[in-house]
């Protein structure tokens, strides 16, 4: 059982995950940021491997990705950093990135390497279900990696059931139909949507992401799901002076 499953077995509520881009703001920031987030109490990490054309991302993550690439981040560099990271960090780690870098690296090689350096799951927003099932599922399973699927307000119920059947750690629920970097609207529509998913009683835990930028949004999301993921708000915070020392403060501002 990988770290993700153990975590969900032990803890069912109020899980907090933070997304950051590997190699941002400095090439070698990855491990320090991960360690600081773990120390500050974050439950699991989502580490972005940067891509030149991230269509599902807003300006904040676009910019951090471009900066990371300019800093020299590549998958090879990232895997070296992750091997180092695992000596200092024990919480679950997810990699998030786009299909093309993974495909160029070689999906089999990518999975083997990710598992070797202690990655627990992968989120590839532009990897379609059909291709995952027919080409990659076996490879993910062989290496004990979870593939995380996204669900949006527009995802039809039968598709959500299918995603639930294909998932083996958690489902990533988007707070709205949008790219990253928006902010959660605490409207009736959002609440009805969260409740609709909760009432489906899915077999996998549900974690809500996109637009979780403050305590109010975190509280709202975790009232309906097992946890929530903060992304752009953290990446924005990383642009501030002395952000590394102030990570505990940031985490407290989201969940205390």
């Amino acid at each position: 059982m990988n770290r993700l499953n153990s975590m969900f077995n032990q803890k069912k509520n109020n899980l907090l995950s933070v997304y950051f881009t590997a190699g941002y703001p400095d090439l070698n920031a990855t491990v320090d940021v991960a360690e600081a987030l773990e120390k500050a109490g974050v439950d699991f990490l989502e580490i972005g491997f940067p891509y030149s054309d991230p269509v599902a991302d807003g300006p904040t993550i676009q910019n951090s990705s471009q900066q990371a690439l300019d800093n020299g981040m590549t998958l090879n560099v990232l895997f070296e950093q992750l091997a180092e990271l695992r000596k200092r960090v024990s919480i679950p780690v997810l990699l998030m990135g786009y299909a093309n870098p993974m495909v160029q690296y070689g999906v089999e090689r990518f999975c083997a390497k990710a598992a070797e350096v202690g990655v627990d799951g992968v989120i590839v927003p532009d990897l379609p279900m059909y291709e995952y099932e027919t080409l990659y599922k076996e490879c993910f399973a062989k290496h004990g990696l979870s593939n995380i699927f996204l669900v949006t307000p527009q995802t039809a119920e039968d598709r959500i059931r299918k995603i639930d059947g294909l998932s083996n750690s958690f489902i990533y629920l988007l707070s709205s139909a949008s790219i990253t970097g928006g902010s959660l609207t605490l409207s009736d529509v959002t609440e009805t949507y969260f409740k609709r998913i909760k009432d489906m009683e899915l077999t996998n835990p549900v974690v809500i992401g996109f637009g979780i930028s403050n305590k109010a949004a975190f509280d709202k999301a975790t009232a309906y799901a097992n946890g929530a993921i903060v992304g752009s708000a953290f990446v924005k915070f990383q642009a501030e002076e002395g952000y590394l020392e102030r990570i505990p403060e940031f985490v407290k501002s989201i969940r205390n």
Partner: peptide
């Protein structure tokens, strides 16, 4: 070919 799109565009 195929349709390598994020879930948001699937519908």
């Amino acid at each position: 070919g195929g349709a390598y799109i994020p879930e948001m565009l699937y519908p």
